[in-house]
Simulated scan of single mutants.
Amino acid sequence: MDLFAGIGGFRKGFESIGGNCVFTSEIDKFAQETYKANFQTNHLFAGDIRDVDTKSIPSHDVLLAGFPCQPFSLAGVSKKNSLGKSHGFDCKIQGTLFFEIARILEHHRPKAFLLENVKNLKSHDKGQTFETILDVLENKLGYKVQYRVINAKSFVPQNRQRIYIVGFREENNFNFDDLIIPDISKGPTLSSVLHPEDGSENFEDPYTIPHLSKVNEKYTITNKLWDYLKMYEKKHRAKGNGFGFGLCKREDVARTLSARYHKDGAEILIDQGEEKNPRRLTPRECARLMGFDKTGDSNFIIPVSDCQAYRQFGNSVVVPVIKEIASLMSKNIFEELILDKIDNLEKCA
């Protein structure tokens, strides 16, 4: 089942090992639009998981969930503190959504699960939030749990650290440390996701224009915004802060793409030389940056506005990372499926 599904990054990863999705839940209507444009949804598709009766969810072997991270992320905690709002499990809207996962795990007892969240989840509230999560998964629900922080920089040209939590219902020989992560220093650069702008790529309206498939001028930031960003960086540099924009060349690796990218694109701006202001990534480049499309491909359907597309890719998981974890988990998942079939045959006999 695909819980807090977003635009299907988890599903795309697990379909690579033969997974078949039987239930999807995603509350955002625009993310639903993108998800349905790219995946078959002839199964139960729910909106807010809090409105779903556990018994109505089909039985499933694997639960996948990138539960909302804003209550635990560094940016989310900072924002909520500044507004005098609670965060983590005290956040009544989003923080309690982990317990929706626990509710489903307790009722259906799937063979395995994979959860994803921001790296800061592990240290949030002096580690108490993560301890609570592990306590629920291990002691209350009885799953054998392992976790690992992985930087997607080994797979895509983006510095993106996330924590992945794997759980199995039965004892097995799964070891998260067996996941081989390519050398981070030898990972891809932005040239692998950017439009080449030399005519070697078919143009794609509205992201590129027919002449040599050049990037549409609308992605070049205005003089006003560029002046503001330079002033903002200068002010914070004087204070010794690290805030500012991220100006990238084709041979660079980007900062983390976030859901706020639609606001000003500051974290990832592509250098276009001294004669021209830098530009934002196009949504197609974001699809490649998150691994939904491979280098040079434009297969993932983006039916929404640029604003919504930026939010969706910024909130997503990195598909190649999920594929690697799925591959590592697959041996144990299939072993448990076989054992279940043998058990059922013995009972029938």
Rank of each mutant, 00 (worst) to 15 (best):
V149K: 06
T132L: 12
G291T: 10
S305N: 12
N241Y: 14
P188Q: 03
L339H: 09
E138A: 03
P68D: 02
L114G: 13
L121V: 06
L328T: 06
N42E: 12
G296A: 10
V118W: 02
G19P: 04
G142D: 03
S213H: 08
Q94E: 05
E116I: 07
K122M: 15
D53R: 12
D90S: 13
P157A: 02
K85F: 08
I7R: 12
D343L: 10
N81W: 06
G246W: 04
N117V: 06
G187A: 05
L74Q: 12
D205H: 14
C21F: 01
E100V: 02
F243A: 08
D183V: 02
M290Q: 15
V304P: 08
G6Q: 09
K230D: 01
Q146E: 10
I150Y: 02
A75M: 08
F45V: 11
I342F: 14
H87W: 14
S298N: 13
I57A: 01
K276M: 11
S86H: 01
N344H: 11
E106F: 00
N175G: 09
E251A: 14
F174E: 04
S191C: 09
T222H: 08
G76K: 07
A326I: 03
K79H: 10
V215I: 13
D306L: 06
F23Q: 01
P206E: 15
E336Y: 08
G273C: 08
G296Q: 11
L97H: 01
S59R: 14
I133W: 01
E171V: 13
N173M: 05
P196C: 03
A309N: 07
E26V: 03
P206H: 09
K294R: 02
A266K: 13
C286Y: 11
F4T: 11
I209L: 07
S78E: 14
L134W: 00
I322R: 15
K224Y: 11
G127F: 03
D252L: 07
F168V: 02
P303R: 05
A65K: 15
P71F: 04
D271C: 05
T282M: 04
A37I: 15
I270N: 13
N277C: 12
V156M: 10
L212G: 00
I221W: 04
T132Y: 06
A309R: 10
D227Q: 09
G66Y: 06
S191I: 06
A37F: 14
I270K: 14
E251M: 00
F45P: 00
K80T: 15
F334K: 15
I184C: 08
L281A: 11
F243K: 13
Q158F: 13
T189Y: 07
P320R: 02
F14D: 00
I180F: 07
F67S: 11
K126F: 07
K341H: 13
E251G: 14
N332V: 05
K122C: 10
K263A: 11
S185G: 14
K144W: 00
E116N: 07
S192M: 06
D205I: 09
L247Q: 00
H43Y: 15
D48E: 13
G199Q: 00
F23H: 03
T129C: 04
D53I: 06
L74N: 10
F4H: 10
T24F: 08
Y207N: 12
F203A: 03
T256G: 05
E100F: 02
A112R: 05
F313T: 12
H236L: 00
K347M: 12
F30D: 11
D178C: 09
D48P: 00
S73N: 05
I301G: 00
R50W: 06
G47A: 09
G95R: 00
S316H: 06
I302E: 07
Q94P: 01
